[in-house]
Amino acid sequence: MQDNLVIKGIEFRSRLWVGTGKYKNFEETARAIEASGADVVTVAVRRVNITDRKSENLLDFVDQKKYKILPNTAGCYNVEDALRYSRLARESGVSDMVKLEVIGDERTLFPDTIGLLKATEILAKEGFMVFPYTNDDPIMAKRLEDAGAVAVMPLAAPIGSGLGIRNPYNLKIILEAAKVPVIVDAGVGTASDVAIAMELGSDAVLLNTAIAGAKDPIMMASAMKHAVIAGRLAYKAGRIGRKLYATASSPIEGML
């Protein structure tokens, strides 16, 4: 049964999206994203190193026939910078998509949602496919959708924290109200966190540190791949209700 995520006519083979940061080297990056089964990988926009021009390029290790590139605006603390990075990313020619981050605070890396909303509005009008990284705030998710976001990406917990799904109830409300796909982004620590996000009905999960920071990133990438599939199937299968007391699985009839 075909169950691919489709956004604006683009089909995504996997509901696990992964970052490319914090790996030991590009070989490890390539092996981890391969093991994760992801078809979307995020990248950051930075200055070319002018003094070390022979250094390898990330895109030499990420086959663009296999993966969709999702540039981010990580490190941008105001609307102007986020717009500048987005436009530069698009000019480089790999993608019209942008994972839009307007960060509000260095310690938490929580989004500045006021700036995020403004930037989303502007970039959507310029024809970008905007994927805003936002808080687990149902009202803001709705506002971003109205501003032209093609999906919303609420955080599970602070970026890189590994705290997991801290507010499943807010995520549930976001999911119920959203007319665009909801991709849980940031803060998951391990496979069960990913499964919970998917069981809630999330359309996809985006993560980086949980794989890159694991003792064995390749094995964790594989675990995440299976967690997304398991969580999605469980969501679609429909879980049983929670009851306080037992219900026997074996019949009483025929007992001695």
Binding site: V45, R47, N57, L58, A74, L88
Partner: peptide
């Protein structure tokens, strides 16, 4: 002049 490219990021 600014010249940018893509690096690893999340």
């Amino acid at each position: 002049v600014e010249i940018i490219h893509f690096v690893g990021g999340g």
